[in-house]
Structures are given as structure tokens and as C-alpha cells.
Design a protein around this nucleic acid. Structure first.
Length: 283
DNA sequence: AAGACGGGGAG
DNA sequence: CTCCCAGTCTT
């Protein structure tokens, strides 16, 4: 075991958070990983508990209505994730005997599961060796090894190869969890806590006296008509049971026709009064 | 390779 | 106000 691995895993055992998805089923891990995509831990926790109680296994979620799924998603953001997670549950229920596949290739094919989530499920649900590269881990290694404050927008081949070299043969899942936790709690994007970091002495960024680097350009959330329409529609879904499966799906499948979908909903009286007043819509 | 896609808490 | 968050999917 390398010096760095020892320091980080020792720190992890002493300082890790007691997160509910660290002691749950593979399905529970998968649900948490989808919810955690671009979404802070603190906001996910309460919703995760509600989902696991209501839909304890894939087939339970597979049987839920799209409207209920959107409603229970609450304010997590990116509500299409909720629909994809439901599709994912339907595939697992029908094609995988209601069991989350323990194979990265098959996981990667499921809707809403990309490189990160497939690797994370392998590590955290099945304790298998995989290359987990989330923003926390990427930032940690960017600083320690590259001396750069912030990682690039997306991992490239070079980065993946370099980080794959670091993944230990034994207890790779703990390496993933520990580096992620260190990135999330100590090696933070803003005001990192270097004075209490267990590997500060090994950090190139620190030894270079913290050179600044531009944050990769993040695409601005678009504030056009379509987005406002989607907000109205989601609002209506949260308050209204009348939307059909087909109508809901149309909102995300036909991205360019959201405004048209909204008009349909208005015409059919499916937009609630509170949504009308919130968005100053005509009655 | 670049954009779209949510929402809210922190500074 | 800007920045950030256990990314994914589509041009």
C-alpha cells in the first residue's frame, strides 16, 4: 500500500460521514448515485429515504406512474433523471430479474447511467475494482499530482489512464470512497482545509503556492421560453394527478415542443391555479 | 468538443 | 450577484 493510500484511508476511517447509502442494497446505491449527479449530498438525503421507503426495489419503482416519480423527485433538479431512473428500474425488473447488474458493461447501457455512475455502483454496491472519477476525486488528484486548482470540464483519456494507475488492487472501493470523501470535506472547491489535510505534504498545488486556474466554462442554464415552460409543467405535475404517461414523456422526449405541450396543458385545464398565478399565466 | 439540462445554499 | 454540486445525453 502506497504512502498516500495509507494516509487517505486512515483519514477516511476516522472522518467519514455516516451516509445512509453506505449501508443499503445495490438498488439503494444506484438510486443514490442518480440523485447525487450534480446535486449536493444534503439535499439528496431526505428524498432518498422517501424513495427507498416507497419503492424499495426496482420493480416497485417500475410500477410507479411518471407523475408520481416527478412529484417525489421534489426540488432535486434535472427532473429527467427521475424519469430515466424509472426506465432504468423497468429494465432491471424485466431483464435482470429485479437485481441491479453487477457488471459495468451492462450498467453502462442502462438509461441515465454514464461512466461515473457505472463505476460508482461497481465500487459502492459490489465492492468491485473500478475507476471512479467524480468531481471531488478529479479535483483532489488535479491538485496533488498536476498542481492545478481545478480539473478540466470532463476527464480525457490521459487523465483516465493516470488515475487508473492509482487504483489499488485490493480494497479499490475504499480508495474510491476515501478519495471522494477527502475531496468533498477537505479538498473543497472553495477554501480547502489544507491545514488539516492528511496529504498536504504530498500536494503539488500546495508546494507551488496555490496557483490560480480558470474554472472550466460551465454552460449557463438557459432562461428561454422552453425552460420556463418546463418549470410550469413540472409545477403542475407536482400538484396535479391528471397528466398521462404520454403527456409527461413528451415533455422530455420532444425537447423542441415544450411550449406546444404547455399550450395543450393550458387548454386542457391541467395547469393548476397556483402555477397560473406563480407564472402570471392567463386563466 | 460544446451545450442543454434545475435548483438552492454559501459567500 | 457568482460559484458550486458523487454527470448524462445530444448535437
Amino acid at each position: 500500500m502506497s504512502h498516500l493510500e495509507k494516509e487517505i484511508t486512515t483519514w477516511f476511517k476516522m472522518n467519514k460521514r455516516d451516509l445512509p447509502w453506505r449501508k443499503t442494497s445495490a438498488w439503494g446505491v444506484l438510486v443514490s448515485e442518480i440523485m447525487l449527479q450534480q446535486t449536493p449530498v444534503a439535499r439528496v438525503e431526505p428524498i432518498w429515504h422517501i424513495w427507498m421507503k416507497r419503492w424499495p426495489t426496482p420493480k416497485d419503482l417500475a410500477a410507479a406512474s411518471a407523475a408520481d416519480v416527478i412529484k417525489e423527485w421534489g426540488r432535486l433538479g434535472y427532473p429527467r433523471r427521475a424519469l430515466r431512473l424509472r426506465e432504468c428500474a423497468q429494465v432491471i425488473a424485466s431483464d435482470f430479474n429485479n437485481k441491479v447488474p453487477d457488471n459495468e458493461i451492462q450498467l453502462r447501457k442502462l438509461p441515465g447511467i454514464g461512466d461515473y455512475t457505472a463505476a460508482a455502483v461497481m465500487a459502492f454496491a459490489f465492492q468491485e475494482r473500478s475507476l471512479v472519477l467524480d468531481i471531488n476525486i478529479r479535483r483532489l488528484f488535479s491538485r496533488i499530482y498536476d498542481g492545478v486548482q481545478s480539473p478540466t470540464a470532463a476527464p480525457n483519456k490521459t487523465e483516465r489512464a493516470a488515475r487508473a494507475e492509482l487504483v489499488p488492487t485490493k480494497n479499490a472501493h475504499m480508495w474510491a470512497a476515501a478519495t471522494m470523501e477527502l475531496g468533498a470535506l477537505i479538498c473543497t472547491a472553495q477554501k480547502p482545509k489544507c491545514e488539516i489535510c492528511p496529504v498536504a505534504d504530498s500536494c503539488k498545488w500546495r508546494s507551488l503556492n496555490y496557483p490560480q486556474s480558470d474554472q472550466p466554462k460551465r454552460t449557463q442554464a438557459w432562461n428561454g421560453t422552453d425552460r420556463q415552460c418546463r418549470g410550469i409543467i413540472v409545477q403542475a405535475l407536482r400538484e396535479n394527478d391528471s397528466l398521462t404517461e404520454k403527456e409527461i414523456k413528451k415533455l422530455w422526449v420532444l425537447e423542441s415542443q415544450v411550449e406546444k405541450a404547455l399550450k395543450t396543458l393550458l387548454a386542457d385545464g391541467l395547469i393548476t391555479q397556483s402555477a397560473r398565478s406563480k407564472y402570471s399565466l392567463p386563466n
